[in-house]
Amino acid sequence: MLKEKEVVKFENVWAYYNSHPALQDINFAIYDRDFLGIIGPNGGGKTTLLKIILGLLKPRHGKVIVLGKEPREGRPQIGYVPQKSFFDKNFPINVWQVTLMGRYSHTGLFRRYSMEDKKLAEQSLERVGMMEYRDRQIGELSGGQQKRVFIARALSSNPKILLLDEPMESVDPKVQGEIYGLLKEFQKEMTIVLVSHDITAISIYVDKIACLNQTLVYHGPKEISVEVLEGTYQCPINLIAHGTIPHRVLKEHD
């Protein structure tokens, strides 16, 4: 049988925040065309993990391989969708200019965006259904529309991995469904990794789940146990059941 291609690999990775361990002995791999949800409480090391994948932070110990390279070198092939948009809502920039920014890693310093850059940015906007808003100022859009634009920006770099930080935060359930639909579509071409503290944001579309709270517990498809979740969150927790209709069962307290 053909072995699945690893796109991200962590081997015995340790990272510290000040002197506190943020990640302890992380070992796992993300495979090509995975749709992986990493969940864990705030302060559980999610941001640190993301920064390591993006090569913005070096782990204290251990080895990280992204697309067969050092994370820094793998970065141009990662499309990143940041968590909250901390941008100034009043900033004078339109949807088109935001989307083009995603091409930077291929365009480089000083150079102007080429015809190809513009073509790819256009395609990305089409794919997320935001082309008709291209001239709108970004702050005028709704939260869900802004999210779509930031996904288009990440897509425009033709990524092999799409990395989303808390993609469903401050987005209503209907839009969440739409965004998951888009991501499922993109999964045919790339690996999707999303990170969230909110377990309800991990939907039926996600194939694999990893729980992160300093240590990481990796699950195969469609399975997650109460013990694991409680170990991660240190509190009683809702159970997620995967199926055609998502439903949650509240576990009784002892």
Partner: peptide, 21 residues
Amino acid sequence: LLYKEFLAISFDEEYSTVIGM
């Protein structure tokens, strides 16, 4: 010369760092 770079860092410095600026 640096129009697109200034625009990017003014708008979203964190993302600009991530994309290697």
